[in-house]
């Protein structure tokens, strides 16, 4: 497991624990977490493996994550907290220059 894989896993765990975060979606094609309208079959197994994408560009590290948030807390607040938590972790980890951290909310409630 290289450093980036470790960092990805570390950040994914971090994000998942932030209050208000309901799901962390794969940065690849997001598979819908479907709840059947008629039968109430819950297809949780369909959710792709959770992942925070980490890449290195010439300006430094770029991090991106797509999340679902719960209804309880304001989506914008949760979004900012996810950013803050990632930024703090990178700073504490003595990471190289951070170019950007993108947090996308793809689902609310």
């Amino acid at each position: 497991m290289d450093d980036r894989t470790a960092l990805t896993r570390d950040l994914t765990d971090l994000v998942r624990l932030i209050p208000g975060v309901a799901a962390v979606y794969s940065s690849g094609p997001v598979v819908v977490e479907a709840v059947s309208a008629v039968t109430q079959v819950v297809l949780r197994g369909a959710v792709a493996h959770d992942v925070v994408a980490v890449a290195e560009a010439n300006g430094g590290l770029t991090v991106s994550v797509t999340i679902g948030v719960s209804e309880g807390l304001p989506a914008t607040e949760v979004c900012r907290q996810v950013y803050d938590a990632i930024a703090e972790r990178l700073l504490l980890g003595g990471m190289a220059e951070t170019a950007s951290i993108a947090v996308k909310v793809a689902r609310i409630g």
């Binding site: 989506a75 979004c79 950013y83 951290i101 947090v103 996308k104 909310v105």
Partner: peptide
């Protein structure tokens, strides 16, 4: 979604807002 940091690119998808 606003944030004071220049490194932050925070967004809601239009789809998420329509769901809301």
């Amino acid at each position: 979604v606003s944030h004071p940091s220049a490194q932050a690119f925070l967004t809601l998808t239009e789809g998420a807002v329509r769901g809301l």
